[in-house]
Nucleic acid binder design. Structure first.
Lengths: 152, 152
DNA sequence: GTTTCTGCAAAGGTTTTGCAACAAA
DNA sequence: TTTGTTGCAAAACCTTTGCAGAAAC
């Protein structure tokens, strides 16, 4: 596991008076050992490949902790289950483009969007903070052929 | 019910070989009788105030039909349940700003964002279509006082 | 008349939780 | 030793579905 991440987790746990356990370490290792988005169940599979004894209850509890700490973020990919994004530690300002047809997700950053988003936010009387912009679109293949080979 | 909406629903039902029933009308009336976003359960309450006999099963089935027809849109407000937005019939291009603290939602439109969003979409190899941009922020009260009176 | 729709109750799937044993600090 | 954690099984929750009777076309 990356050293910076490790420290952040220690800091969060200590601040909250929580404990570092072997089970949590396994789940954290699984969650941040990938750059892919995942569901709770997908994470469970990944964690079990590290420690087959990983329990669902602990996984859900740890997942909520990681979200609360800000290290992991829930994102809406239009799937039935909640998805989690482990990439905000390395890229705190990234956004998502989602193909409404095949559900493919592309992460991107754009300075103009950053500025414009802040403008709009202020205009509406809010103060910009964590800003997660999501764009929905159709992929080229879908528009051209009417379907998409990546479709689920 | 608005005449234009009525026609759109008729057209959709006819196209699909589906039937117009009293139960569906009640649910449609409830859904488009408000400009607020709602969950399935909130819609159930609204529908029951028109017809107390409204059943959950029919409500869920009709809800899925309305989403399929494009008249109603699922939106992610960061709540536990799926929320639905009845305002896309009147404002097909609106976006949402969501306060991460109190979950307040503001709808807005912005021509610059429209253009920039299309640009980004094309740059990433996609073709712009239904574009729903979502911005997350903190409301002023939260930033200033550390909490927010609207918080759930 | 034929086909779709409704409503009930049951099932399905995900996430949370009470509790007793266990482990970290 | 104190307090937090785990894992099981059960519960809670939202949503979907099979089926028989009812309604639309």
């Amino acid at each position: 596991m990356e050293a910076a991440l490790n420290e952040k987790i220690d800091a969060f746990l200590h601040l909250k008076g929580l404990r570092r356990t072997a089970q949590r370490d396994v789940i954290i290792e699984a969650a941040f050992g990938t750059k892919e988005h995942f569901t709770a169940d997908e994470l469970w599979e990944m964690a079990k490949s590290i420690d087959p004894a990983t329990s669902r209850a602990t996984l859900y509890r740890t997942l909520n902790l990681l979200v609360e700490s800000g290290l992991l973020r829930e994102i809406d990919l239009g799937r039935d289950q909640t998805c989690y994004d482990p990439n905000f530690v390395e890229h705190p300002h990234h956004n998502h483009l989602i193909c409404l047809n095949c559900r493919r997700v592309v992460e991107f950053e754009d300075p103009h969007l950053e500025v414009l988003g802040d403008c709009i936010t202020r205009r509406l009387g809010f103060i910009p903070s964590t800003k997660g912009v999501r764009i929905e679109a159709d992929c080229e293949e879908f528009r051209t052929t009417g379907t998409c080979s990546r479709r689920e």
